[in-house]
Design a protein around this nucleic acid. Sequence first.
DNA 1: CTGTTAGCGCCTTCAC
DNA 2: GTGAAGGCGCTAACAG
Lengths: 342, 342
Amino acid sequence: MSAQVPTLKEIAKRLNISVSAVSRALHNHPSIGLRTSARVHQLAAELNYEPNQVALSFKRSKTSMIGVILPNLNHDFFASIVSAIEDVAYRKNYTLLLGQSRDEEDREKRLVESMKSHRVDGVLVSIAKNTANYAHFDLLKKMNIPVVFFDRIPRMPDIHYIASELESGMEAAVRFLVKKKHRNIGMINGPDSLLASKERLEGYMHALQKLRIKIDLSSVVSSNLSREGNQQAMQEILDMKRRPTAIITFNDYVAMDAIKYAKKAGIKINEDISFVSFANEPICNYMDHPPMASVEQFPYQQGEKATELLLQLLEGDEKTRTSNNFHKILLPPQLVIHEAQA
Amino acid sequence: MSAQVPTLKEIAKRLNISVSAVSRALHNHPSIGLRTSARVHQLAAELNYEPNQVALSFKRSKTSMIGVILPNLNHDFFASIVSAIEDVAYRKNYTLLLGQSRDEEDREKRLVESMKSHRVDGVLVSIAKNTANYAHFDLLKKMNIPVVFFDRIPRMPDIHYIASELESGMEAAVRFLVKKKHRNIGMINGPDSLLASKERLEGYMHALQKLRIKIDLSSVVSSNLSREGNQQAMQEILDMKRRPTAIITFNDYVAMDAIKYAKKAGIKINEDISFVSFANEPICNYMDHPPMASVEQFPYQQGEKATELLLQLLEGDEKTRTSNNFHKILLPPQLVIHEAQA
DNA sequence: CTGTTAGCGCCTTCAC
DNA sequence: GTGAAGGCGCTAACAG
């Protein structure tokens, strides 16, 4: 006999008044009698009445839920982004429906389906590394569900997104190494399918070009970002006849795998080969041999901006939402130099 | 003029049949004519019709959403748990409503409120480190929303939970160190408010007692688990007149802070002072001086079990849900010895 | 001041 | 085989 979840109807019945009177009383509608109002409020409190958000969502066709789809949570980078999203969303009374694609296009698709059928008000997405088909995102548009992409952006026209200005981050990385007298700078990039890989490569080439250093694309290798892929990439570099004296890696995890692997091969980190990476993950602080520097991408700020943009789209009128004014925000990253370890 | 989201009504109107006919057709109800059924299916596909999950939730008073409340996502431990929850939930078509308490009781409370009003079908919770008042969880019970706690369990009677058998994990840690000839084993524990701290301490004492080693509680210090707290705790240990030769830490993050701090103080890790910790976070693999061993707590399995239990409660009948049969599952942890680093 | 009504999308019972 | 009606909880327009 567990007490049923209280409803307006229940309160109305007990008080012998109409449902709408109860509703109005609880909303402190001016036209409700003081006595009635008080009685309603009291009983509501007694019963722990709480508006049924599902009914409200249904009625208003607005769920106050934001869908978040990202590759995974195991990197501090994404965890920070989620924190930011949550913080901003929460202030505006939105809740998070979360899903990890695990970098699988199928899962990503299913997640989009799920979010769509749950009628989230908007979606924040960082795409899976191999997603090539973007039809599932178009469906969201058709449903009038705004989408803001962050960090990993699809190569689609007409989208809103927030990401790091990777090219300039890369240029800073290259400049840093060149200033340290490196002239043969290798790179472990991510998979070609990611826009982010392309941008890094372009930054790399531009920077070298500007500095009038010969570009040797044979010292650029790709990894699929798995541990094995990273190790293999490092091996490729070690095998080069003209081995680079510095390596820029796609991110800190790649750097960590590469560094560990290189160490085993007898390389002195940041002496024989210097490393610079992206993301500036907090764990770098715990390594004895972290990369010399890492390009900080400010995930929290990225998450904030993305959410703010999405909420703005949500709260704007139909015009705003469906206009052809697409926001493409690039945040400047910042090269952070790690203090030498003891 | 963006196409409105299609509904049964819309399809019915276009086909000049009734809403219920459409509904039945889409569910392949046998009593619907073949022709009609085909026409309905076709139009539905054309319009990208998709049942409105909100309406369904409303009607069925079941949202197919599971609430997940945990302190944060920045530890791989919790990220893995979320992955497990998501995997299990997804198989049964449940979606995740996620919130981080950031170890603040207030936020935790607000999250519970939010989940409650969104009428999640059930909730998985790992409590904030300072949560002392559990009234908000009682409210869930009153709403007939089952709760399963994981990892961080409140000191409440009559709850379902899954956690690691920390005592035995701690005993394994102590035995390991004693076998390595340590007789003066210190400990950096977590805050007293956590049950997990209490259990570690008990395991510590039991183990020493069994091994007939004198217990010296002055070599046990507490940290609030912040970086500063961890450093301070390490300092306290370094200051001891009878400085321990080994330290067991609350988890790997504490260990990492302590190790880094000790290194700066000139301590040789795992020589002057040996470390053993809990959680066995993957980043240990990247450290030059990880703790000698870490108590693996199998977060993924914990998440799986917790979710399976919750779903079982959800799918059971009212009897199951409200019975006084509370599941208290303890998973045996396992001491993992880290290979010596190169 | 308060009650009645209608409707959001869907399913289900009952009627034809 | 198909349609009509009712109801899940809530709000808002319209009547009194």
